[in-house]
Design a protein around this nucleic acid. Sequence first.
DNA 1: GTCTATAGACCGATAGAC
DNA 2: GTCTATCGGTCTATAGAC
Lengths: 228, 228
Amino acid sequence: MPKHSPLARDADTDTASKVKPKHLDAIAPVKVSFKVQMLQAREDAIVKAVNRLLAEKGFDLMTVDEVAAEVGIAKASLYKHFSSKEDLAAAAMVRILGLAQAFLASLPADAQPLARLVAVARWMLQLQLAGEMPSLPSQNSSLRANLMANKAYLDGLVQVSDQIGGWIEAAQQDGSVNPKIPALVVLYTLYSRACDPVPGFLKAGGQHSDEEIVELVLSSCFDGLRAR
Amino acid sequence: MPKHSPLARDADTDTASKVKPKHLDAIAPVKVSFKVQMLQAREDAIVKAVNRLLAEKGFDLMTVDEVAAEVGIAKASLYKHFSSKEDLAAAAMVRILGLAQAFLASLPADAQPLARLVAVARWMLQLQLAGEMPSLPSQNSSLRANLMANKAYLDGLVQVSDQIGGWIEAAQQDGSVNPKIPALVVLYTLYSRACDPVPGFLKAGGQHSDEEIVELVLSSCFDGLRAR
DNA sequence: GTCTATAGACCGATAGAC
DNA sequence: GTCTATCGGTCTATAGAC
């Protein structure tokens, strides 16, 4: 779990804490950097593998042995980076939240609020269809407790929610989103596109391309089933 | 789960198959009937317990020991009725499908197609909020295989889907449901209300009553998020 | 020679099955 | 009530860097 340097560092769980004390950098800066880069690269590989497995089988059916095998390292080495299976899942969620923040920031500055919301939903659906959206069971309480104790996760979630929440309110004020629906309901409805089973069913049916599926689900979400 | 009369029933795995051959009924009809009733009552208690636990914790987190404890019988007795954990889940699904069929049949004969669809969605949401909607992970492959091999489940699913599917097509023809959305997408969208996480989130938030939650989700489902 | 990180055996608990 | 498999988590012997 956390490797603290002898110098005053506050708790952190990742490899960055393995960096040499700064006064030694002048002696062998390249080497240290390389070592750290290797560790970070491996951590990244671990998180990506976890992400993929979470998307494919879900938390309960994912085993730590599988993760280790997929990364190609020993299970004990996993526990040098992450102290529990829950931590692995949390790291995957933090990664996704980071990707989400990057996506939100990449939207054109002149985009209308509603267009932004649609773009967010589309992004989540595409990610899900690509098998890259980790979906955690909301029922597992030990997992929930772990997530709620994870600062990086909570921070990311709050930031993303605040940003999207602002767009929802703006869209309701400019009249493009139904103002009768509480903003929180709109937010949850958008979030739930990340674990919507409909895209998977349609994909399994084989009648539609991924693009068609995304647009169909977006249409049912924003326009509703009732005729307009 | 449907209880067939001793007359004209085909092979099945549940207790009903333990019924005495018909020609013996005249000899000791009361006794047999009582015995069978006890077995059926216990089976019913088992399936209801499974249903509740599936709704509460999901398939993966539900243990067979829990089921036995909840029913108040020995675990071994469970295996007299159902040969595997997957079978238990399948029985719960068959029961729910039976309830669904009864509900569909109870709708007034003069109800419009769209009104029927809304009623179905409302029924699923109410069941979910009441903690009585078993939701199975669509990822677990052994469970899926077991369900797909279960005739009673498939039959029930097909019957319900056919009935609702007919209403969807009628609603699209009378112009009340968007005809641009394939009927299958509409059907899946309705089904997915059974495992929609939004009601649970809203309930956990405590800002809305169950009735409000149902109507909010119905509105977002049928009217969409976009303003009309 | 010392020190660290790893790989793979290992353990305890638990769940499904009978 | 027992048996077996599996999973999360740990321990130890070793290989390699310095």
